[in-house]
Design a protein around this nucleic acid. Structure first.
Lengths: 181, 181
DNA sequence: TATGTCATGTAACTGGTTACATGATTGC
DNA sequence: GCAATCATGTAACCAGTTACATGACATA
């Protein structure tokens, strides 16, 4: 699966929830998938044009007078299921934080503490946001809810792990700073 | 910090360990940082050329008759410390697995199971590799060891979390498949 | 002498962000 | 009337991968 279809997948996916404008597609992605996905306008609009050309989406009625709205077509829905069944393309790892920490000895515990501090803050933030999303999802029983709970749970596990690691590491870095003096 | 300097950072970093060829830089990165970083030759060679031009690295003696070897210069070492002190550039999240799972209801528990199965396998593999690396690092006491242990620990926390999540999720998906029939 | 590894490099492509320009609509 | 938000689009740029071409060296 080429990477191009990743954006296609995301856009078709949110349009499968309900018809909306490109602007709203982006908002939906950042608001309800922001912890694990992102798209910029520079990707969304060209993608919409392509999907339209390929008949995977179609212009739909819209409340506003300006701008348009797109609905997924039957072909689009088929294509979406298709894309969802393809194997997940693997992306080479690139973790800037760990890259820095790996060479941490060159800058010492102070600088590394900043990096880990930031990791802790981001995990804590994610955890808070996830708690909110968990609450919002609540006892929801539509067919999509169990799957969204899986995604939520993945985020929670990852964030808790990062938080625990960060706290352990901060303690270790304090020891290292201590030993240095 | 621009993204370009990420590759620069990685290359300067491994050359700070010892002088080596571009080929060896790549091997070093995949072998000892492969779980959190990666570089392709298409990035490494142009980067080496740039670093050389900027005087951050210099040609060094080499055992073989063909090919060359590069050593980091004092300026390069200064630049490396500089880069390490800059804030970590944030990369927008793009988790293809969670993207698929989020729309999992459209393809059902079977397909989702494959995705999670694959996540479990990758976590298990990472854990095995980390155990090996942990053993290799052992009681090493050079100045870099404590930092490499931090990195290792990050990987262990993340992999264990992913494994636990995958197992919980597989159980949940079995329930969903059950309910479907 | 054949195979595998070491080694260097580049061209084509892709997926993506950023910054900018432009304008309509809504609510105060 | 003004500010905020909704909305669309594009050009310039960037980081990165992939695929390919090329050849030396070591060793069985």
């Amino acid at each position: 699966m080429s990477k191009r279809s990743q954006t296609e997948l995301a856009v078709l996916g949110v349009l499968s929830i309900e018809p909306m404008s490109g602007y709203a597609v982006r908002r939906t992605i950042t608001e309800s998938m922001g912890l694990f996905w992102s798209e910029s306008f520079g990707q969304i609009y060209p993608t919409l044009a392509r999907l339209l050309e390929d008949g995977l989406i179609a212009p739909a009625a819209h409340g506003r007078t300006s701008g348009s709205s797109y609905a997924i077509t039957d072909v689009g829905r088929r294509q979406l299921r298709q894309l969802l069944s393809l194997p997940v393309p693997s992306t080479p790892p690139r973790n800037g934080r760990l890259l820095r920490l790996f060479f941490g000895a060159l800058v010492g515990p102070r600088t590394c503490t900043e990096v880990v501090e930031e990791a802790r803050a981001s995990a804590a933030g994610a955890l808070a946001r996830l708690a909110q999303e968990r609450a919002d999802l609540g006892q929801e029983s539509d067919p999509g809810a169990p799957y969204r709970r899986l995604v939520l749970s993945a985020g929670e596990h990852a964030a808790r792990a990062q938080l625990a690691w960060a706290e352990e590491s901060l303690a270790e870095l304090r020891r290292l700073a201590e030993a240095e003096r």
